[in-house]
């Protein structure tokens, strides 16, 4: 359903080029949850930006549901790495923003926003402005907004990075539940291998910049998964170790 075909992306500044992604090929099925992991600065966010249609590939093309992506892809919900809440809107109005854009009446959108806000654990903060929230709370507000948008594909760029362990588990559970309830396809960028194996159907390890796919690992743990206990199974450990071995190479080449 999403096909990355021979995609390369370089950023140019004057005559120097930075290659972020190189010759990447990838197919993501409908309802699949794919986790992308790789060294910092390797081009993971760039990949998501191309799927969202915010960046055009330098070479190759991104195909979404049989049509090449050219320009903004409104079928995806994109939770960016940097939180992009509107600073002049309260949490409720931020979360309800996609509904407001779609012309949903005020009473209804407040109701639905408040429900989602409760899901992401921000109850009591509906009236606060983003600059009154912590980093993790802002992330959760973004997550809530994306849920409410209810796109068929969710692009998540390190969505749980700023959360404590407990909250992370709760959010993992919520994400899996919502993805299966809404038949969502999910592309998840993360630095947390545990998280990747816990959530994904497939984990992709990226090389250092420019990113290509170094290893693709199918995670055949059964669903629905118990996000807390799945990590104690031996199958989990095998996946984890294989991936870790490959990642270690990627990371160590990078450093002295």
């Amino acid at each position: 359903m999403i096909r990355i075909e021979n995609v390369s992306k370089s950023f140019y500044k004057r005559d120097t080029a930075v290659d972020a992604v190189q010759n990447m090929n990838l197919t993501i099925e409908r309802r699949e949850i794919v986790a992308v992991i790789g060294p910092s600065g390797c081009g993971k966010s760039t990949l998501l930006n191309m799927i969202a249609g915010l960046y055009a590939p330098t070479r190759g093309r991104v195909v979404y549901k049989d049509a090449p992506v050219s320009g903004i892809n409104t079928d995806v919900g994109y939770m960016t790495q940097k939180d992009s809440l509107l600073p002049w809107r309260s949490v409720r109005d931020n979360v309800a923003f996609p509904l407001e854009l779609a012309g949903v009446a005020k009473a209804e959108r407040s109701d639905r926003a408040d429900q989602v806000i409760q899901h992401v654990g921000l109850r009591g903060f509906e009236e606060r402005y983003p600059n009154e929230l912590s980093g993790g709370m802002r992330k959760r507000a973004c997550l809530g907004r994306m849920m409410l948008y209810g796109a068929e594909t969710a692009l998540l760029d390190e969505p749980f990075a700023a959360l404590d362990a407990q909250l992370k588990l709760a959010m993992h559970d919520l994400m899996l539940r919502l993805a299966s309830e809404n038949d969502q396809t999910v592309v998840l960028v993360t630095h947390d291998l545990m998280e990747a194996v816990t959530l994904a159907d497939r984990v992709l390890v990226c090389t250092r910049r420019p990113a290509t796919i170094a290893l693709e690992q199918r995670i055949d743990l059964e669903r629905p998964r118990d996000v807390l206990n799945v990590r104690f199974s031996s199958a989990f450990k095998e996946h984890y170790d294989t991936l870790w071995e490959r990642l270690r190479v990627e990371y160590s080449e990078d450093r002295v």
């Binding site: 969202a52 915010l54 892809n73 409104t74 994109y78 992009s84 509107l86 002049w88 923003f97």
Partner: peptide
Amino acid sequence: VDQDLIDGARLMRATRAQVIIKVIIPSAM
């Protein structure tokens, strides 16, 4: 105006008028 905010709104299917009224104008306020 932060381009990321504009992109975010457009990804959520904001029309050009909505981007101007709900993102650009409040941000430039």
